[in-house]
Simulated scan of single mutants.
Amino acid sequence: MKVVFAGTPEFAACALRALIDAGFDIPLVLTQPDRPAGRGMQVQASSVKQVALDHGIEVLQPLSLRMDSKDPQRASQAQAAHARLAALGYDVMVVAAYGLILPRSTLDIAPCINIHGSLLPRWRGAAPIHRAIESGDAETGVTIMGMEEGLDTGPMMLIERVAIDDGDTTGSLHDKLAALGATMIVEALRRFERGALPATPQPAAGVSYAAKISKDEARLDFTLPAVDLWRKVRAFNPFPGAQGSVNGTVVKIWNALPADGAGTPGQVLTADAQGIVVACGEGALRLVQLQKPGGKRLPAGEFLKGFALEGLVFA
């Protein structure tokens, strides 16, 4: 069976590695164009592109797959991509966190199967892992689904559940779901090859949307309940990193726990090696790993050296 793969970040790269290891014929990979990344903002290839090149797989990086785009460059790249896809005669396209919308013209070439990091129909959209943690969900998972033109609305083929632990961050949960998705897509394609991959329409009830995470969400509002802020700290680790400010200095907060205490929201109640306890709208939040501007992530005890906080206020 000939498989075209479309994806961009590490979540997708895990699946691509699994399909290569399972022996599927992958003649072509679609991924996002190289872009600046990291502190130095050096232009970098996507994780998926790196895996493809390591295995000698052809890579296409169109800006768009919409042949009717009003941008001549995007339209030209889309036309070239479709011509290449049509010439391949592939059996199925696997899509995982690609970052481009697949138009009807792409979906019509061959069946498209998507790896989505949530229990659909909950958390359709761009940031399902972040939003599941932020909302306090007890579990999430991976859904293998057929693709259609709607946003993550296609029929479900396989679904597996994963508990969200109190210590999970988006980073740790991402790794769990990426590994699970990689295993599931291999199983799905083997079933597809045998004609034994039934699809079930998503239920109409329980639909929610996971909006893309913006850097503007990073600033914590200490008038909120401590449990809400604890979830945000975990949801925003590693991106964009939760933030507070003290006397105008922006401080990143990488790990925190709900704590006992009360006071004016933002007030530092105690500050020691066990953490910096900050009053919230309800309860208090113990900040246990923080980062000064230009510094490293540090446990609270190390962070406090040269950064006295007793009696100050987080805003």
Rank of each mutant, 00 (worst) to 15 (best):
L309E: 02
T106S: 04
G275F: 10
A138S: 14
M184W: 09
A210D: 07
L173E: 07
V207I: 09
I213Q: 04
A205Q: 14
E193T: 15
A97H: 02
W254I: 05
A163V: 11
L28E: 10
A210M: 07
P103K: 11
S214M: 13
E160M: 12
A132P: 03
Q243N: 03
Q50A: 10
V250W: 15
E282F: 10
A75C: 14
I101Q: 03
M184F: 14
S47A: 14
R39T: 08
M184D: 04
L312S: 15
N247F: 07
G301R: 03
S46T: 11
S118P: 00
E160C: 09
P203N: 06
A18W: 08
A81Q: 03
G171W: 15
L53N: 10
S135I: 12
T249E: 13
Q243K: 11
D165K: 06
T31F: 10
V59A: 01
M145D: 04
A242M: 01
D228M: 04
A45L: 12
D221M: 01
K2F: 04
K176N: 00
P155W: 08
R219H: 11
Q61C: 14
A45Q: 14
L269K: 02
E217W: 10
L100T: 00
I109H: 11
T106N: 07
Q77R: 08
F239H: 08
E193H: 15
I133P: 02
T170V: 07
A132I: 01
A179M: 15
D175F: 02
L158V: 12
D175E: 13
L309F: 05
L65T: 00
G40I: 15
I115K: 00
A52P: 02
G311P: 05
T200S: 13
D260M: 03
L53M: 11
T249G: 11
G261A: 00
P72F: 06
V251G: 00
A132S: 11
G241L: 01
E282Y: 10
V246F: 04
A211I: 11
L63G: 14
A308Q: 07
L309V: 07
V51C: 11
G154I: 03
